[in-house]
C-alpha cells in the first residue's frame, strides 16, 4: 500500500515540477537526469537482467542521435521524426552487434562491444561526406522553453522504465534472468538463448536510441566525439547502473540522479559556496578549495565508483537494506 502511494506521488510531483519551478537551469538538469534514467535502464535490461555487460552503448545512443541529425541534414526532415526512427535504427544496428558479440561470453563480450562502439565512432568521424565528420550537425532547437523537452524526456523515462518492468515481470524477463544465472542450464531447459539475448538487446538499443534522438533535438549539436564517446556514454551508462543498483528496476533511476547531482555539484564548486566563502572571509584557502573541488569532479566520480563497488556491490537500491542497517542504524525488525 505504502509502495503504491509512492508510485502515484512521484510521477505527480515530476509532472507538476515545471509549473512549480521556474528555473530553466534546474529544468535542464532534470532533463539530463531523465535522459540518464532512460540510458541507465536500457543498459540494465541487457547487462543487469540478461548478464551481457556491454561497453558499447554509446553506439546506440549515437546512432539514435545521428538518425535525427542526418534526416535533417540530408532530407530537411524535422529532427523530431528522428524520435520515431532513432530507436528503430538503433535496434537495427543492434542486430549485427548481437550477431558479433553474443557468441562470446564474459570478458570477451565486453571487449567486443567496446570495440564495436569505438569502431562506429571512428567511422562517423571518417565518413565526412555523410555525417559531416567532426564538424558535426547543428540544428536550431524547436522550443525556447524547457518545459516541452522536460515532458518528452519524462514521458520517455516513464515509458522506458514501465515497459522494462513489464517485460522483466513476464516470461521473457524470467528467461533473461535464467540466461544471466547460467546460460548453459537455460539452453538445456530449451530456452533459445540467442533469441532472448537479441530481444533483450533490441529493447535496450531501442530506448538508448530514443534517448539519443531526444539529445539531438534538445542539444541542437552533435559530433562523433560527443555522442559516441566511450567515456561519456558507454562507461557512464555502466556507472549509472552500478551506483544505483544493477538488476533492479529503479536502480538506474537512482544512479542517474546521484550522477547528475554529483557532477553539477562538483562542477560549480558546491554551487559557488566555496567561492563565496573565499570572498567573504578573504581567505585564499577557500578560493583554492573551490578550484580544487571543480578540478576534482571526475576524480570524485571515480572514487564514488570504487567505494560503491567495494562496499555496496549491488548499488544503492540493491543494497538498500544494508544501508539502512549500517548508515541509519534502522533495524528492519524494529
Amino acid at each position: 500500500m505504502k509502495k503504491n502511494l509512492y508510485q502515484l506521488i512521484l510521477p505527480a510531483v515530476l509532472a507538476l515540477l515545471p509549473m512549480a519551478v521556474k528555473s530553466e537551469y534546474f529544468l535542464h538538469l532534470m532533463i539530463l537526469f531523465l535522459l540518464w534514467v532512460v540510458i541507465g535502464s536500457s543498459w540494465n535490461i541487457l547487462a543487469g537482467y540478461t548478464g551481457q555487460v556491454s561497453f558499447g552503448h554509446a553506439a546506440f545512443f549515437g546512432v539514435g542521435a545521428y538518425t535525427a541529425g542526418l534526416l535533417f541534414q540530408h532530407l530537411q526532415v524535422s529532427p523530431w521524426w528522428g524520435m520515431a526512427l532513432g530507436g528503430i535504427v538503433a535496434m537495427l544496428i543492434g542486430l549485427p552487434f548481437g550477431a558479433i558479440c553474443f557468441p562470446l561470453r564474459g570478458a570477451y563480450f565486453a571487449l567486443a562491444s567496446l570495440a564495436l562502439g569505438e569502431g562506429i565512432r571512428h567511422i562517423a568521424t571518417v565518413a565526412e561526406g555523410f555525417t559531416g565528420g567532426m564538424m558535426g550537425i547543428m540544428i536550431m532547437p524547436t522550443f525556447t522553453s524547457k518545459a516541452p523537452y522536460y515532458y518528452i524526456a519524462l514521458g520517455l523515462a516513464v515509458l522506458s522504465v514501465l515497459s522494462i518492468r513489464a517485460i522483466i515481470n513476464s516470461k521473457p524477463g524470467y528467461y533473461f534472468v535464467s540466461i544471466r544465472e547460467d546460460q548453459d542450464a537455460a539452453a538445456s531447459l530449451g530456452i533459445d538463448t540467442t533469441l532472448y539475448k537479441n530481444i533483450s538487446l533490441s529493447i535496450s538499443a531501442f530506448w538508448t536510441g530514443m534517448a539519443g534522438a531526444l539529445y539531438m533535438n534538445y542539444m541542437g549539436f552533435i559530433d562523433p566525439n560527443v555522442v559516441f564517446s566511450l567515456h561519456d556514454y558507454s562507461v557512464m551508462a555502466i556507472l549509472v547502473a552500478i551506483v544505483g543498483g544493477v538488476g533492479t528496476i529503479y536502480g538506474p533511476a537512482v544512479g542517474a540522479f546521484i550522477m547528475v547531482a554529483f557532477q553539477e555539484f562538483f562542477r560549480t564548486g558546491f554551487f559557488g559556496l566555496f567561492d563565496y566563502l573565499g570572498k567573504a572571509t578573504g581567505s585564499p584557502a577557500f578560493t583554492a578549495l573551490s578550484g580544487a573541488v571543480r578540478q576534482a569532479h571526475v576524480l570524485g566520480f571515480g572514487i564514488l565508483v570504487i567505494v560503491v563497488i567495494l562496499y555496496l556491490p549491488n548499488g544503492v537500491v540493491g543494497d538498500w537494506e544494508k544501508i539502512k542497517r549500517n548508515v541509519f542504524r534502522i533495524n528492519p525488525a524494529g
Partner: peptide, 23 residues
Amino acid sequence: ILPENQVLMTVGIGMVLTEVARF
C-alpha cells in the same frame, strides 16, 4: 549479480589515476 565487478572496478581505478595525474 554481475561477475564483471572486477572489470568495472578497474574502470573506476583508471578514472582515479587519470584525474590524480591531472590534479
